[in-house]
Design a binder for these strands. Structure first.
Lengths: 159, 159
DNA sequence: TATTGTTATACTCTATAACTATA
DNA sequence: TATAGTTATAGAGTATAACAATA
């Protein structure tokens, strides 16, 4: 009777709706819809376009390959969106003198203006999302996300 | 010097990559890819197909409208996938005697067999994901997700 | 009038891979 | 051989809305 319950399949009756992945997926869908709506209203751009502008703006000078690596945005998706952003004058691309394959990306004045205008509102959104959490809860949350991501990464490798 | 820093735009230098939404989005992409790969290998089905089978299996008897409401799956997406699942013999649909518009969904023997075989592996995955977390971390994580979701919901209403 | 459920449309994102040009 | 970047294709999910049948 006093045997400790093990956290395994014998005793696991977790309902579907308490699955961690279910909770993440539901929250992510809502966050993404919110971001899409905000960015459309604020600047008439998509989430992916904003992510690329934000990446270029925050790194200053970088190549596509570097940004794809740090962002985990699909490289095909990145390339297609970047093309549109260059065409619309938000991003400048110039050949890297050292490596003829690479192009160095930077924000044009128009892109910089958009970045400067939108970033504070995105920062405010981040603060709003955290507004109900204590500092400790934020710390634990970020650490938990790290740990879970590490498990996914490691199990991805084995298969 | 001892003035407390306020958590507002004056002092907010959070780098993009520490944005909560960025962390969620990156983790969710990895979780979804993992789930898609597992379900394809285990049963040859997509994540949405599994979600519907799991919903039908765990509720026993329910209508599409009820499952759409609790799952937050898009109702068009639900309808299209359900059609395929009925065609392939995983789900049975019978007219509700009381409401001629509604159909009551249940798993066929084939669907039940798939559910019984796949669910334990999905439960194991949930345990694996949590394996690096203490009980307290899991508690804080779930509470934090709830609080953030509540903020998104409330700010969605205002606009 | 509202609800159940289907269908259509268009867009976005993901996944994979072929392809070029250069290193 | 490997890397930077583009392009193509197909599959999967999202968003909106029109629609028929029933309540």
């Amino acid at each position: 009777m006093s045997r400790k319950l093990r956290n395994n399949s014998e005793t696991d009756n977790t309902p579907l709706q308490q699955f961690l992945t279910y909770r993440f997926s539901r929250l992510q869908a809502k966050l993404n819809a919110q971001a899409a709506r905000m960015l459309k209203e604020l600047a008439g751009i998509t989430v992916t376009q904003w992510r690329i502008i934000a990446l270029v703006g925050s790194t200053g000078q970088a190549t596509s390959a570097e940004l794809v690596r740090i962002s985990t945005i699909d490289k095909g998706l990145f390339s297609r969106n970047l093309k549109g952003l260059i065409r619309d004058g938000f991003v400048n691309a110039e050949m890297d003198k050292g490596d003829q394959r690479a192009q160095i990306l930077s924000l044009s004045p128009r892109g910089q203006a958009l970045y400067d205008r939108v970033l504070p509102q995105m920062r405010k959104r981040q603060r709003d999302l955290k507004s109900g959490l204590t500092d400790n809860e934020v710390t634990v949350l970020l650490r938990a996300l790290d740990k879970i991501e590490a498990v996914v990464e490691s199990s991805g490798r084995e298969s």
